[in-house]
Design a protein around this nucleic acid. Sequence first.
RNA 1: GGGGGCGUAGCUCAGUGGUUAGAGCACGGGACUCAUAAUCCCUUGGUCGCAGGUUCGAAUCCUGCCGCCCCUACCA
Length: 546
Amino acid sequence: MTTPADNTFYVTTPIYYVNDKPHLGHVYTTMVADVVARYHRLRGDDTFFLTGVDEHAAKVSDKAAEYDLSPQEWADQNAAAFRGTFEKLEMTNNDFVRTSSQRHKDKVTEYVSALLKSGDVYEGEYVGWYDAGQEEYVPENKAKDNDYKSEVNGKPLVKKTEKNYFFKLEKYRDDLLAFYAERDLAGKGYVQPEARKNEVVNRIKEANDIPISRTGSGGWGIPVPGDEEQTIYVWIDALFNYLTYVDDDERRHYWASGATHFIAKDILWFHAAIWPALQMALSKCDGYAWVWGEGVQQNQLVYSHSYWVSESGEKMSKSLGNFLDPAAIDNYVEEFGLDALRYFLATRGPLGTTDSAFSPDLFVEVYNSDLANTFGNSCSRVSNMIGKYFDAKTPSRQDAKVQGVTFNAETQIQSILPGSNSAFNACNLAGPANNALILVREVDSYIEKTEPFKLAKDPEKIDDVGAVLGNCIEALRIASVLLWPFIPDKCEAFWSRIGCGHYAEQLKDNGTGDLEAWVKWGQLKPGTPIEKGEALFPRYQVEKKP
RNA sequence: GGGGGCGUAGCUCAGUGGUUAGAGCACGGGACUCAUAAUCCCUUGGUCGCAGGUUCGAAUCCUGCCGCCCCUACCA
């Protein structure tokens, strides 16, 4: 597990379909990317985090027509909704993709022109089952399931032939398989988690050329260069967003470092096969060799997470009415705070190959045990004792061993950091968060063993009390640094209370921190004022059910 | 139909060939009072979906079955 050698980090989310309303699925992927982006900024990496919306599809212009709006007006409205949601959730994306932007359209046109010239995109014929009523093609299996009749109006489907532009995916089978093998050999699979890879590899072996243009988009979309009748298929248009928004002199180094693409499992094929093949093809065109450079080949990866499902295990969907919509998400933020939502989603979410149930009970349980009772409470009790016994100033600390008890946290920290680093590189978020909590639990355990609140009653032992509390506040400071990617607002509040406001100052506006220096033992200077303040995470009282 | 994945304590999950399978939460007992009725210590709890096989040894590898899920050319 290597990090980009040049300390540059580029992370993306899919661009979200603009006809949708932002829901838990969108929020989850974006939040995961945000936690990872924040971690990289914290450790000082030059980080670029990209999210946005996909606007080009015939259904977008159809929907716009329903509301008597132009496609652009409709897209503007919904793009604003996504942007607003992400801003409210304090996502730290460095830019926001809109595929209807001139920048994107110009670049995609350039890329496709180059591909046309190279011969990897050619004119061909697409044959498929066409539903005239719906004006769309029906996949073979679906057509068969419905006895080759329209699912909607029951009329027979028509075998229709259409002129389309095709991408020579088949030609790249071997290159893709070789690429996968190389990455496996290097110990950093292109597709993660590992379990997702096999299905892709098998499918690549049988991959055929794919149509990358459509007709009948009603002028909404990016025309195929030199053939205004045809529109570039939205998926191809969309994939290129990862490139179009960093294809300039200031940002190209992000691309070169190899992107980390967070996606949900349903869109794996596009990212795992079509996307790298497009990059390979484009890199053979004049002036585009950098698109498939060494850093890209070594570090670009696709992380495919699973779904949030309802408590009973069903897929969340509008039709089932178990959908966590923007209002429901707002309610959680209102009740528990944004950090609580971030923490829960990041540490209990479906990052692996299994779906996770979104359970309100579990949410409360995790909030109370991890955030209120552990981190929040420990901060309170330590700063309270410092306030009581040391006039709210950091006591000076002499020794790790007080009253015959050795404080383990100091040595633990040295082992936690490398573990957390490799966990983040493997896109494991639960591990690093838990590591920080282990540190906090160690503080609580240490307090029980040394009983500073008892020692404080004997004036002769005040130095020992100082040593104990000095150890505690220092360990909590380090824990808060480790927790910042997950619960940034509360950590920043804590920092301002313990004289570490400069951390927040440095990280503000997507600035970078210095993780390694900040987690070194002994940064808090004796005499620094400590403020107890309100509870960081007030315990949530569960109503007792009869 | 084809391809792939998942199934570990009541709950959420670690654990991919090697000593008596782990953590957090929940439950039970005890301690403490600095703290958000918070904390700490100890205990309880699993035929690792089921059945075979490979191996000195399997939750871990192979086969079959059961359950759930993903993909299989146009809604990211």
